[in-house]
């Protein structure tokens, strides 16, 4: 299993969060929405080029800008 950043994951794939780069602010923000290392994320929509992505986590949908998604390191499961 190799790790990639969340913005390069294809639509419909389930991934596991490995690490979150980025400062305190981003870490805390993501943690509030339930995104922590170890959590499972489903990528629902990967917007048009450089657009945001839509993920589903713990039954909730969240839009993440590309820049943010790039800072989330994940690995594919299955």
């Amino acid at each position: 299993m190799f790790s990639i950043s969340l913005d390069s994951v294809k639509e419909g794939k389930v991934v596991k969060v490995l690490d979150i780069y980025g400062g305190w602010g981003i870490r805390q923000r993501l943690s509030c929405l339930g995104i922590h290392p170890g959590d499972l994320i489903t990528v629902k929509k990967s917007g048009i080029i450089h657009g945001p992505i839509l993920i589903s986590i713990h039954g909730n949908h969240i839009a993440l800008g590309r820049g943010i998604a790039r800072k989330i390191l994940v690995e594919e499961v299955e």
Partner: peptide, 8 residues
């Protein structure tokens, strides 16, 4: 900073 927004 980039968007982090819940989609209810």
């Amino acid at each position: 900073p980039g968007m982090i927004l819940e989609i209810p």
